[in-house]
Design a protein around this nucleic acid. Structure first.
Ligand SMILES: [Mn+2]
Ligand SMILES: [Mn+2]
Ligand SMILES: [Mn+2]
Ligand SMILES: [Mn+2]
Lengths: 220, 220
DNA sequence: GAATACATTTTGACTAGTCAAAACAAACGG
DNA sequence: CCGTTTGTTTTGACTAGTCAAAATGTATTC
């Protein structure tokens, strides 16, 4: 019963509220939703009137419990759909975000439950993004990134936090998907470069910014 | 790029234009779309301005080639989605129409092609409704119905042309799905009753109207 | 502590889609 | 034929969502 627009706003607020204390600025929201800031102000006031968000004027917006519940539902649909598209339909993991952006609004609970069962109740999507549970549980473990981890340690990629097709295709090409073994051989702050090595692969150099988008955990 | 509303209008016009010479009345369209007739008149004028339909005022509306092309695309998505929901997700064939009504607007060509391949390029959906081809080919074979076929002949159900959950569950319960063997043992026009027999099943009586919703062909 | 810069909010306008109710045209029935 | 019924169109109003541009508030800088 919430509109596609409302679902997109709520999901986006949820995703952006990770960084700050849950407060999302109008500007960041406008940018992410590709609308003009004035539009966001207007919509956020409407969402606040519906009890889905709290609007602190000139400071930002945060989800209420009800808003968060809805947002997690959308996110669950999004990530289960992505998992389906990759695992069952064998689509490219760089393409599925755009597809799921539409499908997340068209999947009923009945279909979602069947999909979830078909996929074996996965806990993460193809990018390693955690899939919220049916009751909205969202495990939020903190991981190191290739920009912050220790040097020379045996690591495993757990998540790639960049939805852009270019980055994902680049990562895929170099075997940097969740589960892949990797170790950082060198990190040079002045030049902003990180060098990695994958077992049986050529050394790979990328920027600190890019490295920061790849989350890792110590091997076993 | 056509909106959900436009897609629904075009698909509905296509489905309703079967009966007449392609001309659909405003009233029938309004009824089917669950909007008021004035709304349909307004929308149809907008569709005509976009070259998707031809509006003959006070006579009706018909699809242009462009409109028909779009409508067939929506119908293809609808019926492939229904097939997926029944064949892969094992959903009830009475429930899938409502689900597909939403999903038909959210499926991209890329996803549709994969789905089509996964399903083995089916030519009909779970109700026996023909699935338009990628280039919009729509086989329109004419079938007899249980209300019009010959008596005592060995028949096979090919299609059930009623989307309502009640009818479909009723049909399912009595084994009347596409492929099922059946023969009409008696037809009584005065009372409007048709009696059938399925091999290994009890005799079943239904109204002429209901019988007319079940299309059949001669056994082999 | 002003002056300036930047983000946010407000205002006014626009589009898509809808309804209620009045006006209208065509068909029908006596 | 002429009045009545029926379906269609028109009119006016409303909601959701959006943008452009002006107004406003808060931070930053000197
Ligand atoms: Mn979306
Ligand atoms: Mn993802
Ligand atoms: Mn639909
Ligand atoms: Mn069907």
């Amino acid at each position: 019963m919430p509109s596609v627009t409302v679902e997109n706003y709520l999901k986006r607020i949820l995703l952006l509220s990770a960084g700050n204390g849950g407060l999302v600025s109008m500007g960041a929201l406008a940018e992410a939703l590709a609308v003009v800031p004035g539009t966001v102000t207007t919509m956020v006031k409407a969402l606040a009137a519906d009890g889905l968000v709290v609007h602190a004027p000139r400071r930002g917006v945060r989800l209420t419990a009800a808003g968060r519940r809805l947002a997690l539902g959308v996110l669950r649909r999004h990530r289960l759909v992505e998992t389906f598209l990759v695992n069952v339909l064998k689509m490219d993991w760089g393409a599925v975000n755009a597809e799921a952006e539409q499908l997340e609004h068209a999947i009923s609970d009945a279909v979602l439950d069947r999909l979830d069962a078909l996929l074996g109740h996965p806990s993460v999507d193809p990018h390693g993004d955690p899939i919220p549970g049916r009751q909205g549980q969202l495990p939020s473990q903190v991981y190191a990134t290739l920009a912050t981890c220790g040097l020379a340690r045996a690591l495993r990629v757990v998540r790639v936090t960049d939805q852009s097709m270019e980055f994902l295709q680049f990562a895929e090409k170099h075997g940097l998907r969740p589960g892949a073994a990797v170790r950082v051989t060198d990190r040079h702050l002045a030049s902003g470069l990180v060098t990695l090595r994958r077992p049986g692969g050529r050394p790979l150099t990328l920027s600190l910014v890019a490295a920061g988008r790849i989350l890792v955990e110590p091997e076993r």
